[in-house]
Amino acid sequence: MDSHDNPVLRAIRERRSIRKFTTDPVDKQTLKTILEAGQWAPSGMNNQPWRFLVITRGDPRVEKLAQCTKYSPLVSSSAACICVFLDKETIYSEIKDHQGAGACIQNMLLAIHTLGLGGVWLGQIINDQSAALSSLGLSEDKLELQAVVVLGHPDQKGGSKRKPLSELMLEDF
Rank of each mutant, 00 (worst) to 15 (best):
M1K: 13
M1P: 14
D2N: 15
D2T: 12
P7D: 06
P7L: 05
L9Q: 13
R10G: 04
R13P: 03
R13E: 13
E14M: 06
R15N: 03
R16M: 02
I18K: 00
T22I: 00
T23V: 14
T23H: 12
D24C: 04
P25Q: 01
K28M: 09
Q29P: 03
Q29E: 14
Q29G: 05
T30Y: 08
T33K: 06
T33G: 00
I34F: 01
I34T: 02
I34G: 00
L35I: 15
E36Q: 12
G38Q: 05
Q39P: 01
W40M: 11
W40T: 11
A41H: 07
N46G: 07
N46D: 07
N47K: 10
Q48L: 06
Q48N: 09
P49E: 07
F52L: 04
I55L: 11
R57M: 02
G58V: 10
G58P: 13
G58R: 03
V62R: 04
E63V: 14
E63Q: 15
K64I: 07
L65T: 06
A66P: 09
A66G: 07
Q67L: 09
T69D: 01
T69R: 00
A79T: 05
C81W: 03
C81Q: 12
V84P: 00
L86I: 13
D87M: 01
E89Q: 13
E89T: 15
T90Q: 08
I91L: 07
S93H: 06
E94A: 09
I95V: 12
I95T: 12
I95F: 13
H98N: 10
Q99T: 09
A103S: 11
N107S: 08
N107F: 05
M108Q: 13
M108K: 07
T114C: 14
L115M: 10
G116R: 05
G119I: 09
V120F: 03
W121Q: 07
G123D: 09
I125T: 05
I126M: 06
Q129E: 11
L133Q: 12
L133Y: 14
L136V: 05
S139K: 10
E140T: 15
K142D: 14
L143Y: 15
L145N: 09
V148G: 00
V149G: 01
V149F: 01
V150Q: 03
L151T: 04
G152W: 04
G152Y: 06
Q156I: 07
G159A: 13
G159N: 13
R162Y: 13
R162A: 11
K163W: 15
P164L: 08
S166K: 15
S166C: 12
L168Q: 14
L170C: 09
L170Y: 12
D172H: 12
D172C: 09
F173E: 10
